[in-house]
Simulated assay, not measured.
Amino acid sequence: MRSKHEKPGESAFYPWLLLAYPPAHDLVEGPVPQTGPATLCLAAFVVLYTLSVALSFRDRHRAAAASLAALVAVTFLLLTRFAEGWFPLATLMTIACGAVIRGRAVYTVLTALTAALVLLMWRTGAGGENISMTVWGAATGGLVVSVVLKLFSVIAELRETREELARAAVAEERLRFSRDLHDLLGHTLSVMVVKAEAVRRLAPRDAEAAARQAADIETVGRRALTEVRATVTGYRGRGLAAELASARTALAEAGIAVTVSVPESRMAPEADALLGWAVREGVTNVIRHSGARACAIRLDGAILEIHDDGRGPGGSGDGNGLRGLAERAVALGGTLETSAADGFLLRVTIP
């Protein structure tokens, strides 16, 4: 819905009634034939002009069109029956047309009215200069009003579109943020659960080893807190090297044999963060869902593969983590592929 302040209000059209001053002056000062009917017609003209504009801005289009038709009839009655100096009323008539008629129809109507004005003025013996000025004023008045109102309408639509896009961007960012937290906390909590199980197993027979595992849980928890804070401020990932180190530890402690084949290389920060997220998400799925005994992580050029011999994510589908990872890959111009043949394979390709 358009706001009142997004286009000129009807009050902007009423000062143009000053164009009716010459006819009013003639009625008071000059000899005008049939002064009574002329006065009534001029009063009707003013009322119909005001009514056409007011109804148009109140979105009562049918009533406004009927009022405009009556205004056109009264205008030509005035111009055919009274003084030649009253032709400025034609400009008021076309201004009302520009306010009432919408779309391409306004050009057809203005062309017809302009042609009728030329014919009428030529028949009354008006000079070429008067005809040119009147036609110019009438045609320009209607066109300018129509174009300005259309322009303000388009501006209002663009503003609404921009606001809608802003709302969509906020919603998308909230979704991205929630998936980031899911990825981050899912991985961290998986590691903490594995270490807690190790503490439970070691506590009866090796208190010192259990204490070390408990200390690791504290370290992981503190690191998770730091990472959550970093995520809130726009953090995207710790990078491939850090995630590989964490993956080795987490997989080993979960009793899963891990093979890492990742050459040392420098890459763009965005790509490094994406591959880090891929390792985090892939290893989290291996630990939590796969039941795997072995996992291989391999980087070949622009392709990262995480392959295990387990059953994959299971019946839950890709889940929020893989969906979020796929969105990040697409945003960077890459792809995410998964395969459940011969274990579970996660492949991320970056440009």
Rank of each mutant, 00 (worst) to 15 (best):
G9H: 02
A12K: 05
W16K: 07
L18R: 07
L18E: 00
L19R: 13
A20L: 03
P23L: 00
L27H: 14
T35Y: 03
L42Y: 12
L51N: 13
F57Q: 10
A63H: 15
A70K: 14
L71R: 13
F76P: 08
E84G: 09
A112Y: 00
A115H: 04
A116T: 00
N130L: 06
N130E: 11
L143H: 14
R162T: 06
E163Q: 10
E164F: 03
E164I: 05
R167E: 07
A168L: 11
R174F: 07
D180C: 09
L185M: 12
S190H: 00
K195V: 00
V199Y: 07
R201M: 02
A214M: 11
D216G: 05
E218T: 09
G221I: 06
E227D: 15
G234F: 14
E243D: 10
L244R: 10
A245P: 00
A254E: 01
T259I: 11
V260M: 07
P263K: 02
P263I: 11
A268Q: 15
D272S: 09
R280Q: 15
T284E: 15
V286Q: 05
I287W: 10
A296C: 08
I303A: 14
H307E: 14
G310N: 13
D318C: 01
G319L: 13
E327T: 14
A331P: 10
L332Q: 07
G334T: 12
T349I: 06
